[in-house]
């Protein structure tokens, strides 16, 4: 897929996210929009995954979302790659929905293998999965995403020690480095810098990229994959902008967890021009069937 096609898909996923969260009247747009490009690169280009095989792990790359609050972008991505009907996106956060406020397995939503939402736990789980893949000599990859505020949690650093110790060079971790969390700047709430040095000191292969540039995202993943055999896992620190793509929401901590109003939704959807994939509530809306 070309980078321009990926950009179009990412824009459509952002439209989906805005519509879902506005309709739900609650949820987390900031991180969801900011990570749309990385979700697009992973599920529409990089990852080997087939919803028809769900829930088998046979032949599947696995993805874990540690910062579970950005579930809307994951749900939109999973629906657009065929894991469940697009119509279900409008049930986000409603009672009886499979699209829980934070990712859950209990309701049986395809694509999700472990609950998240309580921060700090996903890297440990991903490392465990990577260890299982190693034991079974599986050639597929394990991916995990984390928030930067989430890195305040001590368990992340326990896992950071464990990754190189267990030699899970089949694991690629992303940090959504948008420099914001709920109470404001990450550097004011709990200083994180120099973040690459911290991961290096823990023994990781550290790559820093612009998280909105598909060339950089895909090149970083390709580079991470050359690490196979060294025993060293990779963390990609993706410099991102919270709410990327909606000018009046960009880089403002309030949009971590505030739903847009109807008027704001309309404004946002003008900025995120319609795509040939069509909105999820349009009968002509498209699902990706390409690369399974």
């Amino acid at each position: 897929m070309t980078h321009s096609e990926l950009q179009t898909i990412s824009r459509q996923l952002k439209r989906d996210v805005i519509k879902m969260i506005t309709h739900a009247e609650s949820g987390h747009p900031g991180g969801s929009l900011g990570m749309a490009d990385i979700f697009t690169a992973l599920y529409f280009s990089e990852m080997k995954h087939d919803p028809a095989k769900w829930p088998s792990v046979e032949g599947q790359d696995l993805f874990f979302l540690s910062n579970g609050h950005i579930a809307p972008i994951w749900y939109a991505t999973l629906a657009r790659t065929g894991y469940f009907p697009l119509a279900e996106l409008s049930t986000l956060r409603k009672i009886h929905s499979r699209l829980q406020g934070h990712p859950a397995t209990k309701e049986g939503l395809p694509g999700i293998r472990v609950a998240s939402g309580s921060l700090g736990q996903g890297l440990s789980v991903a490392i465990g999965a990577a260890m299982a893949y190693k034991l079974d000599n599986r050639p597929e990859w394990i991916y995990v995403a984390m928030g930067d505020g989430e890195l305040n949690e001590g368990q992340i650093w326990e896992a950071a020690m464990n990754g190189p110790h267990q030699k899970v060079d089949n694991l690629i971790a992303f940090v959504d480095r948008n420099r914001l969390q709920i109470d404001g700047s990450t550097e004011v709430v709990k200083k994180l810098d120099p973040l690459p040095d911290k991961w290096k000191a823990f023994g990781w292969n550290v790559l820093e990229i612009n998280g909105h540039d598909f060339a950089e995202i895909l090149a970083a993943i390709a580079k991470a994959k050359t690490n196979l055999g060294t025993g060293i896992p990779t963390v990609i620190i993706a410099n991102t902008v919270m709410s990327k793509g909606v000018s009046f929401m960009e880089n403002i901590a309030k949009w971590h967890g505030t739903p847009p109003t109807k008027e704001m939704e309309a404004k946002a959807l003008i900025e995120l021009a319609p795509t040939e994939w069509k909105d999820y509530d349009d009968p002509a809306a498209r699902v990706y069937k390409g690369r399974n």
Binding site: A24, S26, G27, G68, R93, Q100, G101, H102, A104, K106, A115, S116, G117, S118
Partner: peptide, 8 residues
Amino acid sequence: LGEDGATH
């Protein structure tokens, strides 16, 4: 707590 769901 409402819409955030069971994790919270």
